[in-house]
Design a protein around this nucleic acid. Sequence first.
DNA 1: TATTATAATTGTACATGCACAATTTATCAA
DNA 2: TTGATAAATTGTGCATGTACAATTATAATA
Lengths: 236, 236
Amino acid sequence: MLKYQQTATEIEAYIEQHALQQGDKLPVLDQLIRQFAVSKTTMTKALELLERKGTIFQVRGSGIFVRKTNRKGYIELFSTQGFKQNLVEHDIQSKVLSFELIPCPEEIIENLGSAPGEMVYAIKRIRYIDGNIMCLEESYYRQTIVPYLNREIVEQSIFEYLEMALGLNIGFSDMYMHVGKLPDAVATHLELTAGDPALTVETIFHLTNGRPFDYSVITYHYEHSQFVVQANGLYL
Amino acid sequence: MLKYQQTATEIEAYIEQHALQQGDKLPVLDQLIRQFAVSKTTMTKALELLERKGTIFQVRGSGIFVRKTNRKGYIELFSTQGFKQNLVEHDIQSKVLSFELIPCPEEIIENLGSAPGEMVYAIKRIRYIDGNIMCLEESYYRQTIVPYLNREIVEQSIFEYLEMALGLNIGFSDMYMHVGKLPDAVATHLELTAGDPALTVETIFHLTNGRPFDYSVITYHYEHSQFVVQANGLYL
DNA sequence: TATTATAATTGTACATGCACAATTTATCAA
DNA sequence: TTGATAAATTGTGCATGTACAATTATAATA
């Protein structure tokens, strides 16, 4: 683990231990540097990480303060790292509906940037959060990059396997979201009615070297999923 | 404008001028430093910014490459900065449904962290994108922080006014998203039918000093709004 | 007391330099 | 040709230091 990540973790622990609340002030930068015995660069990067994560915010000339989400029951949609802490609080289970190795379907070739006829693992699963149906997930993994998968792995966390066992370095992803009415086939799987609202998220995952390896379409159960996003820029 | 932001903009221009496509390689770091005549720190920060923005990705030992979204018609939901480029491509209009100065409603006090009885500007508008209804927005601005607003400002971009005219520094925000069925009242405004799907986003905006100043609830028209998110961490 | 000017505090921008890790290319042996 | 090994390339991590800008506290003034 990198030093600035380690430092960030230690600062989180510090916040926890001292039971700091929203708006509470941390020690000033210089003292943090001394206290955690790192350079200014490292501390700055650690703080920047925590800021992006939504844990703290910094005010020049004033100090470093705790920023905390209070609402419970929301899924952290984009966590920029450290999603484990977030999801550990929830019990995630998967039921595999289908698992096969097929030639890459036409409409997905473009998304995966794959050669015609290339083989992909096609997986369909239902994912449960704390016992409730959270979403239906259809995903396609390029065999060129993910040479082997089996049903057992797919029942657990696929990404953990990719990172741990295969040593793949997962980089960035493009997500496309839209809201619509549930088609009949999907509704059945989610135990909802056709026409009910649904959030659909298409994602193309890339390795750190930029190669796309996974395309997935997730349809969320509108009653069992709500999301929180902590953002730092500005929008509409 | 800060030097590293300026540099980032210049690099974007470079990409544009040279018509670089997805996967194309930029000059190596050392040359970029010479070419744009900045220090390594500045260049690194500029590249980091572009990476978070989704414009490029960097591969150690290999180089810096262009990452581009190709799908059209999607609204960039979180832009971490530079949303103008994105929205300039669209024509955004607003119709003000109501505009008043009222004591902060009970259920919003907590979100705004305001004192009981504090006055807020309550605004309801419909926002159009390229002539189509995009969303219904209800927002509440604390008068303590935003001393003056009028109908004319509200018909344009409120945030631009806050930043330009009032000199407020807008910092971070917490967003809560969920999908549901349109209630009757909202459906009318969006020219949809009650029970149709809807994406609702609640947002609490803060100044850079951490004080919340705006709480808004936006309900999107499911047929006229889809979103793209370019992310860099990992999730589910 | 209220207001204004000044100083102290505190985080941010930027420059430079060394060490290192991942990738790619070149080299050589089988 | 293939496969292993070494070397060059190239971005990342981390340390140190200077200058500066925004905030807050203090002192001076009306």
